[in-house]
Structures are given as structure tokens and as C-alpha cells.
Simulated assay, not measured.
Amino acid sequence: MTNRQPTAPTRNRRRRLRALGRRQALRVPGPVPPGTTRIEAVGLRVERAGRPVLDQVDLRVRAGELHALVGPNGAGKSTLLAAISGDLPVAGGTIEVDGRAQADWSPVELAMRRAVLTQSSTLSFPFVVEEVVRMGRAPWTGRPEEEHDDVVVAETMARCDIARFAARTYPSLSGGEQARAALARVLAQQASVLLLDEPTAALDLHHQELVMRIARDRADAGDAVVVVLHDLALAAAYADLVTLLADGRIRAAGPPAEVLTAPLLTEVYRHDIEVVPHPRTNLPLVVPRRQPHPLENR
């Protein structure tokens, strides 16, 4: 009796079926009620070259909330974001995602749950903007959600004000345009946890407000959003909660009005800072105290 080897089409079909089986076995996230804890870090410690850059940090990220991480340079904001996103190993403490240890989720399962915007997004190849945004749809490849790729990509580019750049190569864009394209890729992922590291850093005033409005809208729609910010006025205006870090530890956490106080900010930032209410909205305005210009005294 002769053992017949499967033909190439048969082998390919079997590989596709095995891949589909693995896709079907994935734990796909479902609807989450507002207030549900999506990510929780307890006693987090991160070290670099044997030196702690985060120590005994607790953080809870809930559905329906926009949580701002603020603090001076070197405070540990980006390190904390990288740790809770799973992109940075920790030396101590625990991180849970949707009630399970972070390590219990596969990379694809994590990508279905949380999307991460890093400070810089460098591409080695001249992909056009639409291709870059479409990369965000990768976790849903081979699933029914893939049918919505074209609509999601188009809507996301329009929302981030980059639709007119769709056919341009990513390296040809300005820094601010690249930042918005990178954000569009993250939003196209349609994960219900957004971890955004300084999304407004390279943007003009109009697009800073646009990006923070997007983040606010996503939180209002039930997503959990964490944003690293240097602009304390943006944190005061858009965040539900603010965590203030300094020297790798949490100095304060709570609603913006409780955390963004002049005495605490003056101490942490080592600069005289004033916090005054906006005359119309009553939102806190955080401004450095400056000496009058000499010409003003003439």
C-alpha cells in the first residue's frame, strides 16, 4: 500500500483550518460595564541598571474613565505606562488585565484589549498613511471583525484629521502629522483600553484639543483611557483622575482639583506654580509664576 502525500492545496487548507481553530480559541473581550477595573497594578517596581525607576506604585484603570499621569521629567510616567501595557518587564509587584495576570494573556488577546501609543513611532519602510492606520486592525485578522476594516480605517483617519494624507508616505509627514497617524493606527485597533504616551507633545493647539477630545469621547463611551501628559491644564480640563508621580513614586492621586494644587505642584516641579480657576468654566488653570518683563515696568 502506497502512502500518498497530501497535495500543496490540501496542506495549505489544513494550515488555514488550524490557524482558524487557533483564532476561534482566543478569548475575545466582550462588553464591560462602566467602573469595571480593566488594568490593576499593585506594588509595582521597575529597575534599570539595578536602580529603581518605579517603586511601590499602585494604579487602577477603570472603564469609562480618563486617567492622566503627570509629573516632571524622569518621574516614571512613561515607564509606568510601558509596564502596564506589557512592554516592559517588572522587578516586583503584580499587573492584572481584566482580572487575570498580564502574563496569562497571549499577545493577540492583549492586543484585542489594549492599544498602546508610544512617544515615537519610527517606520523603516515608506508605508503610506492608510497602510499605517490599517496595521491597527491586525489583531482582528481572520475574525468577523475584519469585515469592518475599511470602514474603521476611513472613519479613524477622518477623526484624526489625516484623511487628506491617506496616500502620502508616513516619512513625508511632519512630526505632528505623524503623531496623528500613529494615534489613528491605535484607535483603529478598537481596543477598549487606550494607553497613550504624550499624544499631544508634537501637536499645535488645535490638534492638542482634538486629540484630548477624542480621548474624552472614548472614555465617555465606556473605554478606559490612560494618558501621559506634560500639560497640566489639559489634565485638569479632560481627566477624571490624575496620578502625580515624582522620583518613581506616586505623590498624589485623585480628581484633578485635589491633586493639581499650587503647594503640591510647586514642591514636585521645584518651581513656583499658581492654580487659578478659569473665569468662565471654573476649571483649574495651572501656570508658572513669572517675573514681569523689565519693559513692562517702564
Score class of each variant (00 low, 15 high):
R218V: 09
T141C: 12
V242C: 12
D240W: 10
G222F: 10
R143C: 09
A221M: 00
A154P: 03
T266R: 01
T200I: 00
R251T: 09
L196C: 07
S124E: 14
F165M: 13
V259Y: 01
D231Y: 07
V211C: 10
V53P: 11
A115M: 02
V133K: 11
G71M: 07
I95N: 09
R168L: 08
E65W: 10
Q56H: 13
A246L: 08
Q189R: 01
D104F: 00
E109L: 08
A246I: 00
E145V: 02
R185K: 08
V268L: 02
A49M: 10
L187G: 01
R216S: 15
A246D: 15
P277S: 12
H230L: 08
I273H: 06
V276G: 00
R23I: 15
R60N: 06
Y170G: 01
V108H: 06
E209C: 07
A181L: 11
A68L: 10
E258T: 11
G74F: 12
L81R: 07
H148Y: 13
Q291P: 00
A101Y: 00
F125P: 03
A262Q: 03
R16V: 08
A41I: 01
R45P: 00
T79D: 11
R113N: 11
G176V: 01
V228Y: 03
D150M: 12
R114Q: 09
M112D: 03
P256G: 05
V151D: 15
T141Q: 15
G64T: 04
E155H: 14
L17M: 11
P171Y: 09
D223M: 04
G50P: 08
Y269H: 12
